[in-house]
Design a protein around this nucleic acid. Structure first.
Length: 876
RNA sequence: GGGCGCGUAGCUCAGUGGGAGAGCGCUCGCUUCACACGCGAGAGGUCGCUGGUUCGAGCCCAGCCGUGCCCACCA
């Protein structure tokens, strides 16, 4: 426990680990399964990969969720944040395979059973990393019921869903064109493919006509696939080729005859206007082939080598070798008309980074149309709301054009498909079939298949559990937009299909945090920051030079190659503050601002706690106008924060809390009450404790650690702030009169300070003055003290300066302290500025259109302003 | 090709029709008994460009320029 007296700097590294332990031991994050989903509040975390380590996206996403969860918990709702990890088929398998390679072995050598055991061992040892990091961030999730998408119970849910959808006919097996990823040796879904710009060579190849009279020239970037050509297509209206439709051409190197067909797909202006058709190795050709009933010879196998369907001399070559061989032979035969460079987009695997090989393969698919229909309706009806709203359009566009989902993966780590084969028989079920000779399908399901069940499978579905009854459907889902299709859409579809309700009502799409130069944050680019390095201090990547602005060079204190230990609260506040818009650049300044806030709050707490006795108890007992003012401002801050959290507007929520603590509590209230605090006024002490308690309660969802720590120092508090239920019914209400009165005083003090600076009055000097304005009775002493005036009501004499304040002016009287001689140029500057503004206001009021059409209130405000400016100029 | 954003102070960003703001950086002043990683006061913006609507535009409309992301089967 830090000694308040001596700890003038808030030290998160001492406080935070201690508070984490308190929270975890309290059991506060593990709610009993009671109440109805309407009464409770629940969020299912987007399960991080079990291989994952916390990155900035996780940090932001989980800060937002924690903010929501803590806020609702303090409203008194039974709150559950479902937490766990995803088995992440490809990523995890790849990780363990790398480890095996380092040991000089491989998964093939181990065999499937032993390999899967090894992955479980790996998970037991390393799989908890990200969960521990979430705890360090302050995430108040239900760690006591951590879930894993490959747990036995979860697996039952997955199998049941598969079997059910199979029985409905939605899941089926088909030979179809898939995205084959040679890197992982598996098919992958459309969503795991990314298009990249590539510079290729476009080869123009002559295909001799069977009639012997000339040739038809086609253009292709994949000459090796010609070995699997089954037709040539031209546009039906293309006059150059119309006469050739129905004729045949000879496929070079192979000798097969190819029919020349007409298809609207062909773009006459591209290449030669003649397209070679390779149904087995190109998605478009596949469709054209189906339309025309063409054969689908396949010359590239799943091993990325040329198959036996190609002429013998090409067999077993790799794709690159085959391309070289084909091109060389074409050249030799004089059939390569020409080549040209060609830029186009090409599919690559998001998983392995390798170029996708489109080929026809026997895979499991899920038909999506029937599932999509109610999921579309869920959003158009408003039962599921996106924040920001325009993301709903992205979702709907995709859902309305949804295509079948390839769900089988040629991996070992995952949910093995519950299908068994025996000769021509197929058995689908949750349990293996009886009898001998059955072989189970070796493939596993796409990881996203199991993730799609996350909100209900984690609560025990398909069993009817108390957790499910209490917490499902969940309330909010917080995620980034890159997995709207992969995950969010599929959860809505599965939730509706299997539970009959939407799995959540609100989807908050977080911004994506970019590196300061606008690029993605990524380890390989060197643009990634480990949030733990910000929290606990750690290495600063070179692209994050110390402080973006200025050219001060020297960084006072600390290694420029290291981040200071900002603490989790500062990182959380900074991330929230920077999270407006759909893409944001990471701003270390915002984290630093968060650190300032924690330090400011810490010192405010010291002032209060060290200034009042240990026997005082918090109570709102206002004894002066400033007390009523701060209580009113607090009420407004609370209402604003609630509205902003309800609207998922976290950046304004964070900035609003900052403004309240900094701009109102510290800058004004604490300064105003200092004399009374020293005088030991008991009502003030109680009010200060009340304000401090309510302030830490207000800020707790954003900066939970420090507020929890301060709360423990407040006399009379019991238990944890995280578990405190805010008694909103007993809260003090806004007091507009007090707010107006103190606001005038603030503006008067600011005007006085500004004048003193401008007139170069010695800072410590107290200046004789006379107040000439009504409405300052309750704040006169404050104005005198903070403006350093000697306000003698009966003082006579000609003023040497008149300072306008709301409602009137302060007249400065001559005294030995004053020498206005040196300030003439600054005064003249001010006069010029006033003349400019007066000119502008006069112009506006001289405009008859303005006076006639603008609302009377606006016109009057302009007149008042003009009067004020004239008065100030006259007084200077 | 379609869609969604963004362009406001040196930097990062607020600001959806009536006096251009915050944090950092910069300047000046202050060892004021919570905080010098502090306090007070300032300087600094033709609000990307061009038109339009309006008494009035950073804000609404159209076009353009720049920039980021998502979706899409042009060999």
């Amino acid at each position: 426990m830090p000694d308040l007296e001596s700890t003038t700097r808030y030290d998160p590294t001492e406080v935070e680990p201690r508070i984490v332990e308190k929270w975890l031991q309290s059991g506060l994050f593990h709610p009993d399964a009671e109440g109805t989903p309407e009464q409770t509040y629940s969020i299912a975390i987007p399960p991080p990969n079990v291989t994952g380590v916390l990155h900035m996206g996780h940090a932001l996403n989980n800060t937002i969720q924690d903010c929501l969860v803590r806020y609702h918990r303090m409203l008194g709702q039974r709150t559950k944040w479902i937490v766990g990890t995803d088995h992440a088929g490809i990523a995890t398998q790849a990780q363990v395979e790398r480890a095996l390679a380092a040991e000089g072995t491989s998964r093939q050598e181990l065999g499937r059973e032993r390999f899967v055991e090894r992955v479980w061992e790996w998970r037991a040892r390393y799989g908890g990393t990200i969960i521990e990091q979430l705890k360090r961030l302050g995430a108040s999730a239900d760690y006591d019921s951590e879930r894993f998408t490959l747990d036995d119970e979860y697996a039952q849910a997955v199998l049941k869903v598969f079997v059910s959808l199979y029985e409905k006919g939605y899941i089926y097996r088909d030979r179809y064109m898939v995205n084959w990823d040679p890197g992982t040796g598996s098919a992958i879904s459309d969503l795991e493919v990314e298009q990249r710009e590539v510079r290729d060579t476009l080869y123009y190849i002559d295909y001799p006509l069977a009639s012997g009279s000339g040739a038809i020239t086609v253009a292709t970037v994949r000459p090796e696939t010609m070995l699997a050509d089954s037709a040539i297509a031209v546009h039906p209206d293309d006059d150059r080729y119309r006469r050739l439709i129905g004729e045949k051409a000879i496929l070079p190197l192979v000798g097969r005859k190819l029919k020349i067909i007409a298809d609207e797909y062909v773009k006459p202006e591209f290449g030669t206007g003649a397209l070679k058709i390779t149904p087995a190795h190109d998605p478009n050709d596949f469709e054209i082939g189906r339309r025309h009933g063409l054969a689908q010879p396949s010359v590239i196998g799943e091993d990325g080598r040329i198959t036996d369907e190609a002429p013998e001399r090409f067999r077993a070559l790799t794709i690159a070798e085959a391309q070289r061989a084909v091109v060389a032979e074409l050249k030799e035969q004089g059939l390569l008309a020409r080549t040209e460079p060609h830029e186009h987009t090409v599919p690559f695997s998001h998983r392995s980074g390798q170029r996708i090989e489109p080929l026809i393969s026997l895979q499991w698919f899920m038909a999506m149309d029937e599932l999509a229909r109610p999921a579309i309706e869920a959003v158009t009806s408003g039962r599921v709301r996106f924040h920001p709203e325009n993301q709903a359009k992205v979702y709907l566009d995709w859902m309305e054009n949804i295509r079948p989902w390839c769900i089988s993966r040629q991996l070992w780590w995952g949910h093995q498909i519950p299908v068994w084969y025996r000769d021509l028989e197929t058995y689908v079920g949750m349990e293996p079939p009886r009898g001998e000779g059955w072989q189970r399908d070796p493939d596993v399901l796409d990881t996203w298949f199991s993730s799609a069940l996350w909100p209900f499978a984690t609560l025990g579905w398909p069993r009817d559990t108390p957790d499910l009854r209490a917490f499902y459907p969940t309330d909010a889902l917080v995620t980034a937009r890159d997995i709207i299709f992969l995950w969010v859409a599929r959860m809505i579809m599965m939730g509706l299909e299997f539970t009959g309700t939407e799995p959540f009502s609100d989807v908050h799409i977080t911004p994506i945090i970019q590196a300061p130069d606008g690029r993605r944050m990524s380890k390989s680019l060197g643009t990634g920051i480990d949030p733990l390095d910000l929290i606990e201090g750690g290495s600063r990547p070179p692209v994050y030079g110390k402080s973006s602005g200025g050219d001060s060079g020297e960084s006072p204190g600390g290694d420029p190659g290291e981040f200071p230990a900002y603490g989790a609260d500062a990182v959380r506040w900074g991330l929230l503050a920077m999270s407006s818009g759909q893409d944001v650049s990471f701003s270390e300044d915002k984290v630093a601002q968060g650190q300032q806030l924690t330090n400011k709050l810490w010192n405010a707490a010291r002032l209060i706690l060290l200034g009042v006795g240990r026997d005082v108890r918090a109570a709102a007992t206002p004894n002066a106008v400033e007390d009523r003012w701060i209580l009113s401002r607090l009420a407004r801050a609370r209402a604003e924060l609630a509205a902003r959290i309800d609207a998922f507007d976290f950046s304004h929520a964070a900035l609003g809390v900052y403004d309240f603590i900094y701009g109102e509590l510290c800058d004004w209230y604490l300064e105003l009450v200092k004399p009374r605090l020293r005088a030991g006024e008991p009502e003030l002490a109680a009010t200060l404790l009340y304000v401090l308690t309510e302030t830490v309660a207000l800020a707790h969802p954003l900066i939970p650690f420090e507020t929890e720590e301060i709360y423990s120092h407040i006399p009379g508090t019991e238990g944890l702030l995280a578990g405190r239920v805010n008694d909103l019914a007993a809260a003090v209400e806004a007091d507009a009169a007090a707010e107006a009165e103190v606001q005038r005083a603030i503006e008067a003090v600011q005007a006085l300070r500004s004048w003193r600076n401008m007139a170069e009055v010695r800072p410590g000097a107290t200046v004789a003055a006379r107040l000439d304005a009504p409405g300052y009775d309750a704040t006169l002493e404050h104005i005198a003290r903070l403006g350093r005036l000697s306000l003698n009501g009966t003082a006579e004499g000609e003023p040497v300066a008149t300072i306008p304040i709301p409602g009137g002016s302060v007249q400065i009287l001559p005294s030995a302290e004053l020498d206005l001689g040196g300030a003439q140029s600054r005064l003249e500057q001010r006069r010029n500025k006033l003349r400019d503004e007066i000119g502008r206001a006069e112009g506006k009021l001289a405009n008859s259109g303005f006076v006639a059409k603008a609302p009377a209130q606006v016109v009057q405000a302009e007149r008042d302003k003009l009067e004020r400016l004239r008065a100030e100029l006259a007084a200077l």
